[in-house]
């Protein structure tokens, strides 16, 4: 039998092997097993890190302490500054981001350009369709680009800095974020959000645009809403009396999404507001210059 184009086939097979070896979890599994057998070092990432084109990142250990309120137009700049302080001052980064966003017609692409360079961002925009999110842009690039993770973290923190508050600023915090003695179950546990003491029926508003990922009810969280704002920013609103939106609904910043209440495991009427970044609960007050006052009151 006469072989067909053996050299071309060899090159094509080598390309496939390169792609599978370095860019799939199966390849990472083989590399890790090989390194374990031969007792050598491997550069393979954890298996689950091969999903989401490098945009699924945890929040940075520390967030920038805010000197005052963050202007909404500079939220992303503050996020970028918190990831890489050598980029310049937040106002300077904001000005650069504005000019990049004008050229690239996308805030996500501007963040990508800031960390990976304009040429890379232009290339990603050409291959990712109109109005793409960072994940679409990242899928057009080789997955080994670490700058994509930095852009993802900047967008995540920028999203957190830009969040509004679900209740009027005058509402007091009855239980802050952090380790505490549980008021009902006893024992020290992490309180993954902040409790805001508010009367039953008060309007609860979405802190940013997003999609309702969960609108359900259970005996612990009561009537609960989970809203995905994109870029790894997710907020939860628990113990509501009434939910005004359903699964999959698009919500706008400031839209009334629920009425607060006393459902689930709770000592009285209040709203449990939780912020998750990259799947980890963080203190929402870390991203606010204005801190609500604290008071003794209902909690969960």
């Amino acid at each position: 039998m006469k072989p067909r184009l053996p050299l071309v086939e060899l090159v094509l097979c080598a390309l496939c092997l390169w792609a599978a070896w370095y860019h799939t979890p199966a390849g990472a599994l083989v590399r890790t097993a090989g390194a374990w057998v031969f007792r050598t070092h491997t550069t393979a990432r954890p298996l689950l890190a091969y999903y989401g084109a490098g945009t699924l990142v945890p929040p940075p250990e520390h967030a920038l302490p805010l000197p005052g309120p963050v202007p909404p137009a500079q939220a992303l700049a503050y996020g970028a500054f918190a990831v890489r302080a050598d980029l310049g001052s937040p106002p300077a980064i904001a000005s650069r981001l504005r000019s990049l966003a004008q050229t690239l017609h996308s805030e996500d692409a501007a963040a990508l350009a800031l960390f990976c360079g304009e040429e890379t961002a232009h290339y990603a925009m050409e291959h990712a369709g109109s109005q793409p999110h960072l994940i679409d842009l990242a899928r057009a690039l080789p997955p080994s680009k670490t700058c994509v993770s930095q852009a993802a973290q900047a967008l995540m923190l920028g999203g957190a800095y830009a969040l509004a508050w679900p209740l009027p600023e005058s509402v007091r915090i009855t239980s802050p974020f952090g380790m505490r003695e549980h008021p009902l179950l006893g024992g020290r546990r992490l309180h993954a959000g902040v409790d805001l003491g508010v009367m039953k029926g008060a309007p609860v508003r979405a802190v940013a645009d997003g999609i309702v990922r969960r609108a359900s009810s259970d005996g612990v969280n009561g009537r609960i809403l989970v809203v995905d704002h994109g870029g790894g920013v997710v907020t939860s609103y628990c113990h509501n009396d009434e939910l005004l939106v359903g699964d999959g609904d698009h919500v706008r910043r400031g839209q009334m999404i629920a009425r607060s209440g006393n459902t689930g495991r709770s000592t009285g009427p209040h709203l449990h507001y939780q912020l998750d970044l990259g799947g980890e609960p963080v203190d929402p007050l870390r991203f606010r210059a204005q801190r609500p006052k604290t008071a003794v009151g209902a909690s969960d």
């Binding site: 086939e9 060899l10 094509l12 496939c16 599978a20 070896w21």
Partner: peptide, 16 residues
């Protein structure tokens, strides 16, 4: 040897 390996890798990249 390289044809089966290449096909296997091609499909692995596609499934990912």
């Amino acid at each position: 040897i390289f044809l089966p390996l290449g096909m296997c890798a091609l499909v692995a990249v596609g499934t990912h």
